[in-house]
């Protein structure tokens, strides 16, 4: 009898059947925001990293394993962006559904035209490089559409009865993106040919989209902190190339960037790169619009 009671107690602690909504967990909030666009009410979204965090360095806290434990679908940026923290969390989540290779594990980079793929043999003398290419791809509208399409397709496989809804939402999202792009066009036009310097090499996709020209980076090599010699050369380049903007992700320390911008005569912009970077940036549209407004605003005042 006692044994039965124990068994019953144990059974109570076992995971209960999932609620109706598909539980989607994203590594960064932007992917979660895109998922919400296509998932609507059929999905619950939670993000492991926060928008104000450097996505390379999220602390792999065990509490995040608990979030992953209940997930039906894990969305991650891929291209080794989360290599330093996500794998132990996925293993520790004890959730068979989201292990690599399973339906519940979606590498959102799989259909993205990846930039900065190394063309020569790479090693770490080049800094903390991403051998698979640049993973900071979620801002341009064309890429957002690709990510949304991939998510819609995977959600349809996980939750077949919602497939029609996901396709309908995807079409609506694409329409919203087109409308937004139209609205953004004057701001986009302002940026063509603008010379910029960035902190980390994370604006490549935005530069390509807007036609901006990247002259240099505050980091001498990806992940390697700036040194005086490099900054000295960079300031000279900013002056000689007439660089107008210095872009820094808002999770970095701004002191060095401020000095370089001031000495070189460029305007410093402290920009969000992810949903949730600031409380008012609640979705992907607000994120991109905030970035474009700041960029074009800076150009109007130059």
């Amino acid at each position: 009898m006692k044994r039965l009671a124990l068994l019953a107690a144990f059974a109570l602690l076992l995971p209960r059947p999932a609620a109706a909504a598909v539980k989607v967990v994203s590594s960064i909030p932007s992917l979660g925001s895109l998922a919400k666009e296509v998932g609507g009410d059929r999905i619950d979204v939670e993000s492991l990293g926060k928008g104000y965090q450097d996505p390379h360095f999220v602390e792999p806290k065990p509490s995040l394993m608990l979030v992953l434990n209940k997930a039906d679908l894990l969305l991650y940026v891929g291209l080794d962006l989360e290599i330093g923290w996500l794998p132990p969390l996925v293993l520790g989540s004890r959730n068979p559904k989201i292990q690599t290779g399973e339906l519940g594990s979606l590498d959102c980079s799989r259909a993205i035209p990846v930039l900065d793929v190394p063309t020569t043999k790479v090693d770490r003398s080049m800094g903390d490089i991403h051998p698979l290419g640049n993973p900071h791809y979620w801002l341009p509208p064309a890429n957002a559409k690709i990510i949304a399409r991939e998510i819609a397709q995977r959600l349809s496989q996980i939750d077949p009865s919602g497939a029609a809804t996901y396709q309908k939402n995807l079409a609506a999202f694409n329409g919203k993106v087109d409308a937004a792009a139209k609205k953004w066009q004057p701001m986009v036009d302002k940026m063509r040919g603008v010379k910029i310097v960035t902190y980390h090499k994370s604006w490549t996709y935005v530069s390509q989209w807007l036609g901006m020209e990247e002259i240099g980076y505050l980091e001498p090599k990806p992940g390697i902190p700036p040194d005086p010699d490099h900054l000295f050369r960079l300031i000279q380049a900013i002056r000689s190339e007439h660089v107008q903007l210095l872009l820094v992700e808002d999770f970095y320390n701004l002191n060095t960037a401020r000095l370089v911008a001031q000495k070189g005569g460029a305007k410093l912009l402290d920009l969000p790169t992810d949903v949730g970077a600031k409380p008012q940036i609640k979705d992907w549209f607000t994120l991109v619009e905030t970035i474009l407004t700041q960029l074009s605003g800076a150009m109007s005042r130059v």
């Binding site: 926060k50 104000y52 602390e59 808002d250 970095y252 320390n253």
Partner: peptide, 9 residues
């Protein structure tokens, strides 16, 4: 550990 390094490391 603060969630980002904006205020230092």
């Amino acid at each position: 550990k603060p969630p980002n390094v904006a205020a230092g490391y």
